[in-house]
């Protein structure tokens, strides 16, 4: 899996270089290629970070969908939080609920936890094995299965396609 690690980190560093320079002259691209090759060899020849990503067209397609879904959820989260903050009665109903995930890869779990943190009224406090403990600003279901259905499912279906 070393090749996969190297190539993914190479692509990420190269993309960052191009975005920083925002010019596509030959010398800049050549310097970028050399630098990203060196950096990915130096720092990512032993790391395990990207070894769980599937590099298929389908996974790429689902990554795009995931980003789209995530942005919509982020905007929904903000409208929701704004409503709660500005309403005079302060309608909150907080609590800590437990949800369960079926994802195995560490990276996918990290992304899941981060996405939950940025979506409406939910915030990951702790992860233990398959369980995520989530602070929910408006507890609708305290039962594990129902909470999982409403909080985790929308992200998990996409993440499953991207990671093993």
């Amino acid at each position: 899996m070393k090749i996969k690690n190297l190539s993914v980190s190479f692509v990420i560093i190269m993309a960052a270089w191009l975005l920083l320079n925002w010019s596509f002259k030959a010398e800049i691209i050549v310097v970028g290629l050399v630098l990203s090759l060196l950096l990915s060899l130096l720092f990512c020849s032993k790391c395990q970070l990207f070894s769980e990503i599937k590099l298929t067209p389908k996974a790429f397609f689902y990554t795009l969908i995931y980003i789209f879904v995530f942005l919509i959820e982020l905007i929904k989260a903000n409208i929701d939080v704004t409503k709660r903050i500005l309403s005079p009665t302060l309608p909150i109903n907080p609590g800590v609920v437990k949800v369960e995930t079926t994802l195995n890869s560490k990276m996918a779990r990290l992304i899941l936890a981060n996405s939950i943190t940025l979506t409406p009224g939910t915030f990951t406090i702790e992860i233990h094995e398959n369980a995520l403990y989530i602070h929910w600003i408006d507890v609708k279901y305290s039962d594990v299965n129902q909470a999982t259905e409403i909080l985790v499912r929308k992200f998990e279906t996409y993440l499953k396609e991207i990671y093993d």
Binding site: L74, I75, A77, N78, V81, T82, R84, I85, L86, L90, I92, P94, T117, L118, G121, F123, H135, I137
Partner: peptide
């Protein structure tokens, strides 16, 4: 920042602070 003042405890404050400040 209004949310930071209005919310009752630290957990809800962190919630509002994170989401609105990210966007």
């Amino acid at each position: 920042s209004i949310g930071l003042i209005r919310m009752p405890d630290v957990y809800n404050r962190v919630q509002t602070g994170t989401k609105a400040s990210t966007l």
